[in-house]
């Protein structure tokens, strides 16, 4: 990991509040692995407001052109700053951070379920799984039309996917987990990787646990240092004594065994 500056190659507006920021960085393209993230300074040089860096999963890596991207929704001052960045400007970030996801070597079939912005780390994971010859089914669920044009990115990675929207404005009306429930026999021997809102993860845990399916969750939490020093981004992870320990999303994660995450 390093503190880096990278030239912005493009800042593409996907919808009213969804953007893809493409950044030139040979270091990230060479060293970053699926599920890792970068911590972006969301203020101009010389300014410290907003103060804390914001963590973003790495979305794509183009090794040929040394360009990586992050996909983000504008939610507050930090992401508004990012939305306003222009081609040619410099991005100040730290990375790559977090542990790369450990792909279970013996499993050959995977189901990826992303909810909202949770699809971001799954895209790089899906690409990686495909590149090593694994079978991947990708299910993405959204609340509204913000991700309407995002399908053009997904289709470049794989063809076997289904998109759902809760209001039915695009894709199929519904949520991925309902589809999985109804068609579970197709996926019962798959390894699941999930990322999305806590409620979605909680439901996935409950459903998959009953069926003894193995699953990995990509977690997020508010962070300060991003490197494992401050203990700010902890989540509860079950331990052997039927209790829990606090684990750091930034440096122990962000990938955890879904069945060990405590959602209470």
């Amino acid at each position: 990991m390093k503190t880096l500056k990278g030239e912005i190659v493009a800042n593409r507006k996907y919808s009213d509040n969804l953007y893809k920021l493409e950044v030139f960085s040979p270091y990230i393209c060479k060293n970053a692995k699926p599920a890792q993230f970068i911590n972006i300074k969301c203020s101009r040089q010389g300014s410290d407001d907003p103060l804390l860096r914001r963590p973003f999963s790495i979305y794509e890596i183009d090794e040929q052109f040394n360009v990586f991207s992050v996909l983000f929704l504008v939610r507050g001052r930090g992401t508004q700053f990012m939305a306003d960045l222009r081609k040619g400007e410099s991005l100040d970030f730290v990375g790559p951070l977090g542990q790369p996801i450990k792909i279970p070597e013996n499993d050959s079939r995977f189901v990826l379920i992303g909810g909202g912005i949770g699809v971001v780390p799954l895209c790089l994971i899906a690409k990686n799984l495909k590149s090593i010859g694994k079978t991947v089914h990708f299910f993405a669920g959204f609340k509204d039309e913000a991700f309407y044009t995002w399908e053009r990115d997904l289709i470049k990675i794989l063809k076997d996917y289904k998109i759902f929207s809760e209001n039915g404005v695009f894709g199929e009306k519904g949520i991925p987990l309902n589809y999985i429930r109804e068609n579970f026999s197709e996926f019962k021997d798959h390894h699941f990787i999930v990322c999305g809102p806590l409620e979605m993860l909680k439901q996935a845990q409950s459903f998959l646990k009953d069926r003894k399916v193995r699953a990995i969750a990509i977690m997020e939490e508010k962070m300060a240092c991003g490197i494992g020093a401050c203990m700010g981004c902890v989540i509860k992870i079950k331990n052997k004594n039927n209790g829990y320990s606090y684990k750091k999303v930034c440096s122990d994660g962000p990938a955890f065994d879904l069945m060990e995450v405590c959602f209470d």
Partner: peptide, 23 residues
């Protein structure tokens, strides 16, 4: 020490709050 319940971090104007609780 286990420390405090998350969330433990919160951005404020030109500052931040932490409630790590000496984990």
């Amino acid at each position: 020490m286990a420390g405090n319940l998350p969330p433990r971090i919160c951005e404020t104007s030109s500052g931040m709050l932490n409630s790590i609780g000496l984990q």
